[in-house]
Amino acid sequence: MNLGLMLDAVAVLPSGIALTLTLTVLSLTAGFLLSVPLAFVRAFGRPAFSGAALAYTYVVRGTPMLVQLFLIYYGLGQIEAVRASIFWVVLRDPFWCALLAFSLNSAAHTTEILCRGLQSVPKGVIEAAASLGLKRFQTARLVTFPIAFRISLPAYGNEVVGMIKGSSLASTVTLLEITGMARQMVSTTFAPYEIFIVAGAIYLLLTSIAVKATQFLERRLSTDRRPAERARSRWRPPLPGRGITTPLS
């Protein structure tokens, strides 16, 4: 163990955090936006559409993200039409390729997570919303989705952690995020332990923060406490009326 090298790594590696976080946050956001409609289709859509959504999530979740990343980064260039199109400017760039691969991957995982949440929303609540005269979109926006999101939150927390860890694959397509920086440092200093251990510690810090944040959000959104306590929570999704109690989990 060379402490001096570890200190060097502590000084250098944090500059990769920005790229790791950018990749993680952007792909989680894109994945989430894609997955919400997909999850509704997968949970409540007609069999053909639901099957198509399942096929997408099944294939993406059944193959390694590394293969997906290489398919997009190296594979798409083989098609002449892609190289001739305007998308080539984007698909030539490793950052956008990584972002695309991570987003599609995250969308598939999040779709399955949200779908399970949507399916466990009690039927009675949806019927109650319909009987109150809410339109189908209003029911989805105000009733079904908020309840499903709350149910899915623990599983979604795992997806966030998975994405932080998965973003390390970006180092394989020359991006210099935390792992990329670490690999570069190792190739010049030949001191794998010191540097990879520091990189691991940084990842551990990031994933621990993500876990804590999810737990905090879970507590904020939980409905098992008294209304007075819940009123103090700022991030509660707007449910119509506070008297609705649903048997969750």
Binding site: V161, S168, L169, T179, A182, V186, I197, G200, L204, T207
Partner: peptide, 11 residues
């Protein structure tokens, strides 16, 4: 569980 698998393999 908090460190990327890739990093563990490299280490």
């Amino acid at each position: 569980r908090g460190v990327p698998e890739l990093l563990i393999i490299l280490l």
